Simulated scan of single mutants.
Amino acid sequence: MYCDFYGLKEKPFTITPNPEFIFLSRNHREAFAHLLYGVDSHAGFIAMTGEVGTGKTTLLRTLLTQLDADKYRSALIFNTCLSWEQLLATICREFDITPVESSRFGYLDALNRFLLDQHLVGSTVVLVIDEAQNMAPDVLEQIRMLSNMETEQDKLIQIILAGQPELEDVLARHDLRQLSQRITVRCRLIPMGLNDTGDYISHRLKVSGCRIPNLFSRGAVKCIYRFSKGVPRLINIACEQTLVMAWTQERTSITKGMVAEVLAETGSFRRRGIMRRFLNWLAAGR
Protein backbone atom coordinates (compact mmCIF):
# COMPACT_ATOMS: atom_id res chain seq x y z
CA MET A 1 0.00 0.00 0.00
CA TYR A 2 1.33 3.45 0.93
CA CYS A 3 4.53 2.14 2.54
CA ASP A 4 6.28 1.73 -0.82
CA PHE A 5 5.05 5.11 -2.02
CA TYR A 6 6.42 6.92 1.03
CA GLY A 7 9.51 4.73 1.39
CA LEU A 8 8.42 3.29 4.73
CA LYS A 9 9.75 0.02 6.07
CA GLU A 10 6.58 -0.49 8.10
CA LYS A 11 3.29 1.22 8.88
CA PRO A 12 3.93 4.06 11.35
CA PHE A 13 0.49 4.49 12.86
CA THR A 14 -0.83 1.09 13.87
CA ILE A 15 -2.69 1.05 17.18
CA THR A 16 -0.92 -2.00 18.57
CA PRO A 17 1.42 -1.25 21.54
CA ASN A 18 4.87 -1.50 19.94
CA PRO A 19 7.83 -0.44 22.15
CA GLU A 20 9.89 0.32 19.02
CA PHE A 21 7.67 3.35 18.44
CA ILE A 22 7.70 4.62 22.02
CA PHE A 23 7.63 8.39 22.24
CA LEU A 24 8.13 9.91 25.64
CA SER A 25 6.37 13.21 26.09
CA ARG A 26 7.21 15.11 29.27
CA ASN A 27 4.39 13.38 31.13
CA HIS A 28 5.35 9.97 29.73
CA ARG A 29 8.97 10.53 30.80
CA GLU A 30 7.83 11.37 34.32
CA ALA A 31 5.63 8.27 34.47
CA PHE A 32 8.42 6.09 33.12
CA ALA A 33 10.80 7.49 35.71
CA HIS A 34 8.28 6.71 38.47
CA LEU A 35 7.98 3.12 37.24
CA LEU A 36 11.74 2.63 37.11
CA TYR A 37 12.20 4.20 40.52
CA GLY A 38 9.49 2.02 42.04
CA VAL A 39 11.02 -1.16 40.63
CA ASP A 40 14.62 -0.28 41.44
CA SER A 41 13.82 0.86 44.97
CA HIS A 42 11.72 -2.26 45.63
CA ALA A 43 8.68 -0.17 46.52
CA GLY A 44 6.45 -3.24 46.53
CA PHE A 45 3.35 -1.74 44.92
CA ILE A 46 3.25 0.78 42.08
CA ALA A 47 0.12 2.17 40.41
CA MET A 48 -0.19 3.82 36.99
CA THR A 49 -3.48 5.14 35.62
CA GLY A 50 -4.48 6.87 32.42
CA GLU A 51 -7.38 7.32 30.06
CA VAL A 52 -8.02 4.90 27.21
CA GLY A 53 -5.44 5.31 24.45
CA THR A 54 -2.89 7.38 26.39
CA GLY A 55 -0.16 4.74 25.99
CA LYS A 56 -0.19 2.76 29.23
CA THR A 57 0.40 -0.65 27.66
CA THR A 58 3.13 0.66 25.35
CA LEU A 59 4.91 2.25 28.31
CA LEU A 60 4.66 -0.98 30.31
CA ARG A 61 6.01 -3.08 27.45
CA THR A 62 8.84 -0.60 26.99
CA LEU A 63 9.67 -0.83 30.70
CA LEU A 64 9.88 -4.61 30.52
CA THR A 65 12.19 -4.49 27.50
CA GLN A 66 14.49 -2.13 29.44
CA LEU A 67 14.93 -4.49 32.39
CA ASP A 68 18.15 -6.49 32.28
CA ALA A 69 17.22 -10.16 31.94
CA ASP A 70 20.18 -11.09 34.16
CA LYS A 71 18.84 -8.98 37.03
CA TYR A 72 15.07 -9.12 36.59
CA ARG A 73 12.38 -11.71 36.08
CA SER A 74 9.21 -10.10 34.76
CA ALA A 75 5.72 -11.02 33.63
CA LEU A 76 2.85 -9.05 32.10
CA ILE A 77 -0.77 -10.06 32.72
CA PHE A 78 -3.51 -8.33 30.76
CA ASN A 79 -6.46 -10.70 31.26
CA THR A 80 -7.75 -9.55 34.63
CA CYS A 81 -11.29 -10.96 34.66
CA LEU A 82 -10.08 -13.92 36.71
CA SER A 83 -10.73 -15.50 40.06
CA TRP A 84 -7.90 -15.50 42.61
CA GLU A 85 -6.98 -19.10 41.86
CA GLN A 86 -7.05 -18.46 38.10
CA LEU A 87 -4.82 -15.43 38.57
CA LEU A 88 -2.35 -17.44 40.64
CA ALA A 89 -2.26 -20.10 37.92
CA THR A 90 -1.63 -17.41 35.31
CA ILE A 91 1.18 -15.85 37.36
CA CYS A 92 2.86 -19.23 37.76
CA ARG A 93 2.54 -19.94 34.05
CA GLU A 94 4.01 -16.56 33.07
CA PHE A 95 7.02 -17.14 35.33
CA ASP A 96 7.40 -20.76 34.13
CA ILE A 97 6.68 -22.05 37.64
CA THR A 98 5.48 -25.65 37.94
CA PRO A 99 3.50 -26.21 41.16
CA VAL A 100 3.36 -29.59 42.85
CA GLU A 101 -0.42 -29.43 42.75
CA SER A 102 -2.91 -27.29 40.84
CA SER A 103 -4.58 -25.66 43.81
CA ARG A 104 -4.50 -22.31 45.54
CA PHE A 105 -2.07 -23.64 48.13
CA GLY A 106 0.05 -25.32 45.45
CA TYR A 107 0.33 -22.13 43.40
CA LEU A 108 1.18 -19.97 46.43
CA ASP A 109 3.76 -22.43 47.72
CA ALA A 110 5.45 -22.71 44.33
CA LEU A 111 5.41 -18.93 43.86
CA ASN A 112 6.94 -18.34 47.29
CA ARG A 113 9.74 -20.82 46.60
CA PHE A 114 10.36 -19.17 43.23
CA LEU A 115 10.58 -15.71 44.82
CA LEU A 116 13.00 -16.90 47.48
CA ASP A 117 15.19 -18.58 44.86
CA GLN A 118 15.27 -15.42 42.75
CA HIS A 119 16.14 -13.33 45.80
CA LEU A 120 19.06 -15.63 46.62
CA VAL A 121 20.57 -15.14 43.16
CA GLY A 122 20.00 -11.37 43.26
CA SER A 123 17.13 -11.15 40.78
CA THR A 124 14.20 -8.77 41.17
CA VAL A 125 10.79 -10.20 40.32
CA VAL A 126 8.41 -7.76 38.62
CA LEU A 127 4.74 -8.56 38.06
CA VAL A 128 2.79 -6.14 35.84
CA ILE A 129 -1.00 -6.34 35.86
CA ASP A 130 -2.61 -4.30 33.08
CA GLU A 131 -6.33 -3.39 32.96
CA ALA A 132 -6.37 -3.75 36.74
CA GLN A 133 -9.58 -1.71 37.00
CA ASN A 134 -11.45 -4.84 35.87
CA MET A 135 -10.28 -6.95 38.80
CA ALA A 136 -12.75 -7.93 41.48
CA PRO A 137 -12.08 -6.19 44.83
CA ASP A 138 -11.59 -9.51 46.61
CA VAL A 139 -8.92 -10.50 44.06
CA LEU A 140 -7.14 -7.17 44.55
CA GLU A 141 -7.19 -7.76 48.28
CA GLN A 142 -5.58 -11.16 47.75
CA ILE A 143 -2.91 -9.53 45.59
CA ARG A 144 -2.09 -7.35 48.58
CA MET A 145 -1.30 -10.51 50.47
CA LEU A 146 1.43 -11.30 47.92
CA SER A 147 3.39 -8.39 49.35
CA ASN A 148 3.63 -10.39 52.58
CA MET A 149 6.11 -12.59 50.75
CA GLU A 150 9.20 -10.81 51.98
CA THR A 151 12.42 -11.13 53.88
CA GLU A 152 13.27 -9.04 56.93
CA GLN A 153 14.93 -6.47 54.66
CA ASP A 154 13.13 -6.58 51.33
CA LYS A 155 9.99 -7.25 49.32
CA LEU A 156 10.30 -10.37 47.19
CA ILE A 157 8.01 -9.15 44.41
CA GLN A 158 7.37 -5.77 42.81
CA ILE A 159 3.79 -5.37 41.57
CA ILE A 160 2.67 -2.73 39.07
CA LEU A 161 -1.08 -2.16 38.84
CA ALA A 162 -2.02 -0.29 35.67
CA GLY A 163 -5.43 0.71 34.47
CA GLN A 164 -7.94 3.34 33.47
CA PRO A 165 -8.90 6.13 35.91
CA GLU A 166 -11.59 3.84 37.32
CA LEU A 167 -8.75 1.98 39.04
CA GLU A 168 -8.31 5.00 41.32
CA ASP A 169 -11.96 4.70 42.33
CA VAL A 170 -11.55 1.00 43.04
CA LEU A 171 -8.46 1.58 45.18
CA ALA A 172 -10.34 4.28 47.10
CA ARG A 173 -12.83 1.70 48.40
CA HIS A 174 -12.88 1.39 52.18
CA ASP A 175 -12.35 -2.37 52.05
CA LEU A 176 -9.19 -1.88 49.94
CA ARG A 177 -7.62 0.80 52.11
CA GLN A 178 -4.81 -1.53 53.20
CA LEU A 179 -3.84 -2.11 49.57
CA SER A 180 -4.08 1.59 48.79
CA GLN A 181 -1.81 2.43 51.71
CA ARG A 182 0.84 0.03 50.41
CA ILE A 183 1.05 1.75 47.03
CA THR A 184 4.00 4.06 47.60
CA VAL A 185 4.60 5.08 43.97
CA ARG A 186 1.78 6.47 41.81
CA CYS A 187 1.75 8.09 38.39
CA ARG A 188 -0.85 9.10 35.83
CA LEU A 189 -0.65 9.45 32.06
CA ILE A 190 -2.41 12.43 30.49
CA PRO A 191 -2.94 13.36 26.82
CA MET A 192 -0.17 15.23 25.01
CA GLY A 193 -0.08 18.93 24.13
CA LEU A 194 0.10 20.34 20.61
CA ASN A 195 3.90 20.45 20.39
CA ASP A 196 4.25 16.89 21.67
CA THR A 197 1.58 15.78 19.20
CA GLY A 198 3.65 17.14 16.32
CA ASP A 199 6.83 15.58 17.69
CA TYR A 200 4.98 12.28 18.19
CA ILE A 201 3.86 12.18 14.56
CA SER A 202 7.36 13.05 13.31
CA HIS A 203 8.92 10.45 15.60
CA ARG A 204 6.74 7.61 14.35
CA LEU A 205 7.38 8.55 10.73
CA LYS A 206 11.14 8.67 11.36
CA VAL A 207 11.14 5.26 13.05
CA SER A 208 9.27 3.89 10.03
CA GLY A 209 11.96 5.23 7.69
CA CYS A 210 10.16 8.22 6.20
CA ARG A 211 12.53 10.59 4.39
CA ILE A 212 9.95 13.21 3.43
CA PRO A 213 10.44 16.25 5.68
CA ASN A 214 7.29 17.77 7.17
CA LEU A 215 5.01 15.21 5.55
CA PHE A 216 2.25 16.44 7.85
CA SER A 217 2.00 20.24 7.66
CA ARG A 218 1.69 22.32 10.81
CA GLY A 219 -1.94 22.96 9.95
CA ALA A 220 -2.53 19.22 9.55
CA VAL A 221 -0.97 18.57 12.95
CA LYS A 222 -3.19 21.19 14.57
CA CYS A 223 -6.26 19.60 12.99
CA ILE A 224 -5.24 16.16 14.23
CA TYR A 225 -4.60 17.56 17.68
CA ARG A 226 -8.05 19.15 17.87
CA PHE A 227 -9.60 15.83 16.86
CA SER A 228 -7.50 13.62 19.15
CA LYS A 229 -7.04 16.03 22.07
CA GLY A 230 -3.53 14.60 22.33
CA VAL A 231 -4.55 10.96 22.84
CA PRO A 232 -1.96 8.79 21.02
CA ARG A 233 -4.41 6.14 19.85
CA LEU A 234 -6.67 8.74 18.24
CA ILE A 235 -3.65 10.46 16.70
CA ASN A 236 -2.69 7.15 15.11
CA ILE A 237 -6.18 6.60 13.73
CA ALA A 238 -6.32 10.08 12.18
CA CYS A 239 -2.81 9.84 10.71
CA GLU A 240 -3.38 6.36 9.30
CA GLN A 241 -6.57 7.33 7.52
CA THR A 242 -5.03 10.52 6.17
CA LEU A 243 -1.97 8.66 4.88
CA VAL A 244 -4.24 6.25 3.01
CA MET A 245 -6.09 9.16 1.43
CA ALA A 246 -2.86 10.99 0.53
CA TRP A 247 -1.46 7.84 -1.04
CA THR A 248 -4.50 7.37 -3.25
CA GLN A 249 -3.98 10.95 -4.49
CA GLU A 250 -0.19 10.53 -4.77
CA ARG A 251 0.39 13.48 -2.48
CA THR A 252 3.71 14.00 -0.71
CA SER A 253 2.43 16.77 1.55
CA ILE A 254 -0.53 16.38 3.89
CA THR A 255 -2.50 19.55 4.48
CA LYS A 256 -5.03 20.69 7.03
CA GLY A 257 -7.77 20.39 4.40
CA MET A 258 -6.96 16.76 3.71
CA VAL A 259 -7.09 15.90 7.41
CA ALA A 260 -10.36 17.81 7.81
CA GLU A 261 -11.87 15.91 4.88
CA VAL A 262 -10.85 12.55 6.36
CA LEU A 263 -12.17 13.42 9.80
CA ALA A 264 -15.44 14.70 8.35
CA GLU A 265 -15.91 11.34 6.66
CA THR A 266 -15.12 9.58 9.94
CA GLY A 267 -18.52 10.60 11.32
CA SER A 268 -20.37 8.92 8.48
CA PHE A 269 -18.12 5.88 8.80
CA ARG A 270 -19.10 5.56 12.43
CA ARG A 271 -22.80 5.85 11.63
CA ARG A 272 -22.61 3.14 9.00
CA GLY A 273 -20.52 0.83 11.18
CA ILE A 274 -17.57 1.05 8.80
CA MET A 275 -15.32 2.63 11.44
CA ARG A 276 -15.45 -0.53 13.54
CA ARG A 277 -14.27 -2.62 10.59
CA PHE A 278 -11.56 -0.05 9.83
CA LEU A 279 -10.26 -0.20 13.42
CA ASN A 280 -10.20 -3.99 13.26
CA TRP A 281 -8.24 -3.72 10.03
CA LEU A 282 -5.74 -1.38 11.70
CA ALA A 283 -5.39 -3.62 14.74
CA ALA A 284 -4.64 -6.58 12.49
CA GLY A 285 -1.73 -4.62 11.03
CA ARG A 286 -2.82 -5.17 7.45
Rank of each mutant, 00 (worst) to 15 (best):
S228F: 00
P165I: 10
N134H: 11
D40L: 12
T54N: 04
L156E: 00
A238E: 00
L115M: 07
D154R: 15
G285S: 13
K256D: 12
F32W: 05
D96G: 07
K11G: 01
L116Q: 11
T255Y: 04
M135A: 00
L82I: 01
L263K: 05
S268W: 08
L76H: 10
R277M: 10
K71W: 08
H174C: 01
F95W: 11
K56N: 05
G163W: 00
A136I: 02
L176W: 05
L8W: 04
L282A: 07
C3V: 10
N280S: 11
G53N: 02
K155N: 13
R144G: 03
V128R: 01
P12N: 04
I22S: 06
D199M: 14
I183Y: 11
E168S: 15
T197I: 06
M275Y: 14
R286P: 05
L146N: 02
G193P: 03
N280T: 09
T98L: 13
E261M: 14
T248P: 01
Y72P: 05
T62Y: 15
L115D: 02
L282M: 15
K229P: 02
R204K: 15
D199F: 08
I183N: 07
I77L: 15
A136D: 14
Y200R: 00
K256Q: 14
R61K: 15
G198V: 06
K11Y: 06
R277T: 12
P99G: 06
V121P: 02
L282I: 12
A162G: 08
D40W: 10
P191V: 03
D68P: 07
A89N: 12
Q241P: 00
A172E: 12
V128G: 04
Q178K: 07
A33Q: 10
V170I: 15
R286A: 13
V39F: 08
A75K: 04
S180C: 11
R286D: 14
N148R: 07
M258H: 04
D68C: 11
F32I: 06
L215Q: 02
R144L: 08
V262S: 02
N280R: 14
A283W: 09
N148L: 12
L87C: 03
Q241E: 14
V207P: 01
L59W: 02
E150K: 13
E20R: 14
S253F: 07
D109M: 10
C81W: 09
L24W: 03
G106M: 06
N112C: 08
L194M: 11
T252H: 14
K71C: 10
R188I: 03
G50E: 03
F45I: 05
I91Y: 01
K206I: 06
L8C: 09
M245T: 10
Q153K: 14
M258D: 10
I129E: 02
V262C: 11
L234Y: 00
P191F: 04
P165A: 12
N79P: 03
P165T: 11
D169L: 13
E10K: 14
N214P: 01
Q249T: 10
N214D: 15
L63P: 00
N236G: 06
N27Q: 12
Q118D: 13
L60E: 03
A31V: 15
T49H: 05
P191H: 05
S103P: 10
L282V: 07
Y37K: 08
R61H: 09
I224G: 00
D109R: 11
W84T: 08
R73Q: 14
V262Y: 01
R272P: 00
D117Y: 08
W247E: 04
T62I: 05
G163V: 03
I129Q: 02
I77T: 08
I160S: 00
C210S: 13
